[in-house]
Amino acid sequence: MQTGSRTDGGLLDAIAGGDPTALRELYARHAPWLQLRLQRRCADRDAVDDALQDTFVAVWKRPARYDGSGEVAAWLWGIAIRRLIDALRRRPRALTLLEREEAEPSAEEQVLLGIEHGDLAGALNRLSPELRAVVQATVLDGLTTTEAAGLLGIPAGTVKTRMMRARAQLREEFA
């Protein structure tokens, strides 16, 4: 996603050099779509806002973490979705009875709890690291095949093949 005169990679290089205008440009370029995608996964506006802010703080602190492989947008999405999960985990777990009746857990929270503590957690942990990474990127992080390929540094066809193998193993696991 390049809309200004500098590429995303060029902006990251400038951020590494301490250029705050580069961070503002990267933010203006990517924050709107990141926020929209995060909102599709979580109804808690505060958690989404925190995740978005934390994403760009992480970029400011460590722009060199981007290794140049894949799209910067996919790298940013990976950071953003992990920050959203962290924001949801930081929320207080203990609710009063009244609050529980008013605030049903979102689908995102239910899935995250199932992934972290349920049968799905064990099944995912039994997948090979290569298969688990593809499931994480495409299913949990919501990346497209192309974005996952860029993030993982593998061809899109490999992402599809690994996802097919992961599905087959998970079907066997839950059959």
Rank of each mutant, 00 (worst) to 15 (best):
A16L: 02
V57N: 04
L140F: 14
Q39C: 11
V57Q: 10
T55P: 03
L113M: 12
G114E: 14
V59R: 02
R132I: 01
D86A: 09
E104W: 15
A16K: 01
A133N: 12
L143I: 02
G114P: 08
A166K: 09
V159T: 05
T7P: 09
D13I: 01
T21S: 06
T138Q: 10
S128E: 11
R29N: 10
G70Y: 03
L38G: 07
G157P: 00
D49G: 13
A43M: 04
M164Y: 13
D67L: 04
P20Q: 03
L26M: 04
D119W: 07
E109P: 12
P155R: 11
L38I: 05
Q39M: 13
A64P: 01
A22R: 08
L170A: 08
E102A: 14
I85F: 01
R82Y: 00
D67Q: 10
D46C: 00
T21G: 01
A80Q: 06
R65Y: 04
G153L: 10
G150N: 07
L127W: 10
V135W: 15
L152V: 09
L170M: 09
S106R: 04
T3I: 14
A58I: 02
Q39W: 07
R62H: 15
E147V: 05
L88P: 00
E104N: 13
F56C: 06
L170T: 08
L26K: 07
W33D: 09
L140K: 06
D44K: 12
G18I: 07
D44N: 14
D54A: 14
A123D: 08
G9Y: 01
R82T: 12
A94T: 14
A166N: 09
A149R: 09
L52A: 05
I154E: 04
I85Y: 02
L34W: 06
A148C: 07
K160Q: 15
S69P: 01
T161L: 12
S128Y: 06
R126T: 13
T161Q: 10
D54P: 02
V139K: 05
L127A: 10
G70K: 02
L26D: 05
E130P: 01
V135M: 14
A73T: 12
E172H: 13
D13T: 04
L140D: 03
D86Q: 07
P20V: 03
E116K: 14
R93D: 10
A22H: 10
G153M: 11
G122R: 14
A64E: 15
G122M: 07
Y66I: 04
A47I: 03
